[in-house]
Design a protein around this nucleic acid. Sequence first.
DNA 1: CCATAACCGAGACGGTACGTCGGGTCTTATC
DNA 2: GATAAGACCCGACGTACCGTCTCGGTTATGG
Lengths: 184, 184, 184, 184
Amino acid sequence: MHTRNGPGRPRSERCRQDILDAVDDLLVEVGYAAMTMKGIAERAGVGRQTVYRWWSTKAEVLLEACVEDFAEELTVEAHPDPAQDLLGYLCALTTFLIGDPPGIAYRALLGEAQHDAAVRELLRDDPLTSSAAAVLRRTGSPADSLAVAQFVGPVLSQVLVGPAPLDPEALRRHVDLLLTAWRA
Amino acid sequence: MHTRNGPGRPRSERCRQDILDAVDDLLVEVGYAAMTMKGIAERAGVGRQTVYRWWSTKAEVLLEACVEDFAEELTVEAHPDPAQDLLGYLCALTTFLIGDPPGIAYRALLGEAQHDAAVRELLRDDPLTSSAAAVLRRTGSPADSLAVAQFVGPVLSQVLVGPAPLDPEALRRHVDLLLTAWRA
Amino acid sequence: MHTRNGPGRPRSERCRQDILDAVDDLLVEVGYAAMTMKGIAERAGVGRQTVYRWWSTKAEVLLEACVEDFAEELTVEAHPDPAQDLLGYLCALTTFLIGDPPGIAYRALLGEAQHDAAVRELLRDDPLTSSAAAVLRRTGSPADSLAVAQFVGPVLSQVLVGPAPLDPEALRRHVDLLLTAWRA
Amino acid sequence: MHTRNGPGRPRSERCRQDILDAVDDLLVEVGYAAMTMKGIAERAGVGRQTVYRWWSTKAEVLLEACVEDFAEELTVEAHPDPAQDLLGYLCALTTFLIGDPPGIAYRALLGEAQHDAAVRELLRDDPLTSSAAAVLRRTGSPADSLAVAQFVGPVLSQVLVGPAPLDPEALRRHVDLLLTAWRA
DNA sequence: CCATAACCGAGACGGTACGTCGGGTCTTATC
DNA sequence: GATAAGACCCGACGTACCGTCTCGGTTATGG
């Protein structure tokens, strides 16, 4: 949707997509840390400058490469029972963060954001927060920032910090606690 | 307590400390991202190899430089009222993660851990988790991994992900919810 | 005459020349032994990799920096009298090897060649041998490899090994001996 | 023959010899260029400081390790026929410089001497020059520095500079020329 | 016979150059 | 004017060797 009208060759959407595909591939092949702008360009069969024309950092291009996957992976179909609905979401979230390439990308970006203000800015409209809020709303639970934090925070922090994520049984007890408290 | 008994000149504890001090300084002066092994060595007035002799990565030396501060900063004196006790801890935790140099270091390390298994291993015995568990125990609350996650997870995740940490009022409501649920 | 036709930015002849100039300067300022690839790059105001792109060793770049001077310095105008012609050449050769920067470079390269096969290969088409052969030919003397060795060998060896080079009187006697023997 | 009489442990002649042996070994195993003071010490099973106590540079210790071999290898038994005597010496000299480890060491030292004044000083009393002078004297030929240079210079320069040393036939013609000229 | 002092091995120390790699910019020819 | 290619400057990487120093331990002499 580049609205340039001036002279000259327009930017190649094909290039853009090649680069994003290359990032996807490299993420699973070499991981985030070993991924370089140079490597992305070569993998995509693209000049280095072309990458910089669209995005200025590794984090930006990675975000764009994965952002669609974020929404898709975190979209869980509703369940009539609120408890099951919330539990389903948290299970999907755990799987996403632990195993999926886009989840790994998300964690890597979250990591960069801790010592890079620019990356932090990119994550301002966090896909995780908004998807969790949606689930809370459709189950009639509170969905303010505290509620969202109480809902996903324990899961997220355990994945980021702990040696192992919360297991399904723990997730069930977590949901129970929240639902009980919110209904009171 | 380095138990070298072999021959040769012993390693200089003085050098070790100079390096750790340099890391402390550089953390506040240039930040984690701009800190390099080269820079550390030069700042400490030490040969580069001497740094590598003690630690092999930036993360390792940073961890050791800050690990004492972690424990110190996260130690909050007990309050007779459990609610006040827990709240005090969470406030201190928030301050620590947002503002203190060691807290910034902790976040940076947490970030690295997301795409570096070696760093993750370093953080296996997480200072945050253990200090939080201690506070929970002394207030008579449950202190298993789920409870700890429920306690600090929302705070932590909001700091790591969100645009702003939970404010004191939200923290108070969070503590109330947990205490109510746990007492039931 | 680099016959690149491929794509990409062409190598900068300007850089090449800056580097060669820097080598020339450093040779007289700090000498061969203290000359480093790092120092050359910095002196030339050039990235280190740019030096390595053109030449892979200190010896190679030094050779290229001086090879033109070699030919120039060792070119002595002909003298009608063969004895004077030969003597003039040997005097010039002595001066070249003892005092001129390019001569010092030549000796340094000769030295490296003794324990570095790659440098030896660089000196395969020796400028000294060919210039001496030319002088011998124009005076009607034999110019095979033995004759060249007999002509310049004593001068060269005395410079390389001895405490002092052959003085002009000795050079005169040397030329007389050779001319007498060759005429017989 | 260190004439110390004071207290303290005397220097170990055994160490000295171990070091010299190590240098001999390393010379043939890794060559001069790859030989380091560190490597010598380790090979000799000796502290680094012990090497420095006896010699201060690689060149010094190498010279001492080989100097005895120099004299030995360059000593050729006399032949009643002067031409054969001189020829025998030059053949031995060529073999020495081309093939023998001590000969290779000599060339390496000669090389260093071209850009290191200290090494040059070490070679002031050149073993090659003096042995050649001895041979000239015993055949009744002139033995001043010019004569020595005329005798060995062509051989030496061809070894140092040329692609190949003078072959035996060339050496024979060289000797003939000199003897003829000197007898006249 | 023991104190002194120089030696010994080992290896850590501050430096410095190595050759490589990635970052981000630029300059070509080509499209 | 966008593109692929790739050279450019810069600076950090981790390693190697330099020559010095500091250990514990050894071995002679001299008080």
